[in-house]
């Protein structure tokens, strides 16, 4: 019995070694290999679908909870102890103020840095050091930027927990995103266009101003919009800067205390009554609509001007 088994096993081995010639056997082996391929194809597809399913659940659940709270009152009321009197007005205006300061700052600083690195810097230790800094800053947790903001802007510069302190913190946080996107876009400007400009006697800055920047602008704007959408959704750095207080007014100037949408949502999440959870969901709907709109604009810009 066992001898027979061994024999047949040997036989199989022999068959495998000569499987190229043995058609029936090799085709069953191919069948098995293809079977594995199909199985894993399904598994990889399933893994990809996890993200989509989660997104669908998340959106559905949030809309279900928050939808009925999206009334005009929600946009006109300030925060309150009573859910029925609570609204998002201070948070929306705070976010607008913050973006109003952060947007021009990040754009100017980010594009300038990118132009310097792509068009002016020589390949020396300084430019390598700056690049190393930028790639490391991109990986620093946002809450650490919050600590920097708290120490530098709130305390040392004495700005307090103001719109300005929060905006400056956010600017530093999202700057690496704008720099990286702008550099990529500037590097993609064909060198023959720059050469044409130089060959007509244009100076370096004229070439940058009239050829490089117009060509790179869509990419730069896309990067800036994505960076700002990150800034709108960030919570932790502003908590550190001290934006979590009871704010029932819109900012009057750069030095006003303020709250932003994610922080108001965070405060509602922390309150015990179920209605506050629904308010949080309503706030999230508003926040997500703003972010999706910004993302859509960025994607449109990218597709429209993609060369």
């Amino acid at each position: 019995m066992s001898a027979e088994k061994t024999l047949s096993k040997e036989h199989t081995n022999q068959q495998t070694s000569s499987s190229l010639r043995n058609h029936s056997h090799s085709s069953s082996q191919v069948q098995r290999r293809r079977g594995w391929n199909y199985l894993f194809h399904a598994l990889f597809l399933l893994a990809t679908l996890v993200g989509i399913i989660v997104l669908a659940f998340l959106l559905f659940d949030i809309v279900k909870r928050g939808w009925s709270w999206l009334t005009p009152d929600f946009f006109e009321n300030f925060a309150s102890r009573l859910p029925s009197r609570s609204g998002f007005k201070a948070a929306i205006w705070g976010s607008l103020w913050m973006i109003g300061v952060t947007a021009p700052l990040t754009f100017i600083l980010g594009v300038s840095t990118a132009i310097y690195l792509e068009e002016y810097s020589k390949k020396n230790w300084l430019s390598r050091f700056i690049q190393l800094n930028i790639s490391n800053l991109a990986g620093v947790p946002s809450i650490v930027y919050g600590i920097l903001g708290l120490t530098l802007f709130v305390r040392i510069l004495g700005l307090g927990s103001s719109v300005l302190a929060g905006s400056l913190t956010m600017t530093l946080l999202v700057l690496p995103i704008v720099i990286v996107a702008s550099r990529e876009s500037i590097a993609s400007v064909p060198s023959i266009l720059k050469q044409a400009s130089y060959a007509m006697g244009a100076s370096r800055w004229q070439t940058i101003r009239h050829v490089v920047l117009p060509y790179a602008l869509p990419g730069v704007l896309t990067g800036t919009i994505l960076a700002l959408s990150r800034a709108i959704g960030e919570t932790a750095p502003l908590i550190m800067v001290g934006a979590v207080t009871f704010v029932a007014f819109t900012p009057e100037n750069l030095f006003s205390p303020f709250t932003v949408m994610p922080i108001q949502i965070y405060q509602w999440i922390g309150l015990p009554r179920i209605e506050f959870q629904q308010l949080a969901a309503a706030g999230i709907i508003v926040l997500l609509i703003v972010l999706l709109t910004m993302n859509a604009i960025a994607i449109l810009l990218r597709n429209k001007f993609q060369r």
């Binding site: 007509m200 006697g201 244009a202």
Partner: peptide, 30 residues
């Protein structure tokens, strides 16, 4: 100024992604 006096045409046509008018006007404006 040298390059203003010594113009150059390149291997592949390389017009700027601007209008025909603005392409030709580029140099004089500069």
């Amino acid at each position: 100024m040298l390059r203003k006096n010594v113009g150059m045409v390149f291997q592949a046509p390389n017009p700027f992604p601007k209008s025909i008018y603005d392409n030709v006007a580029y140099g004089p404006r500069i």
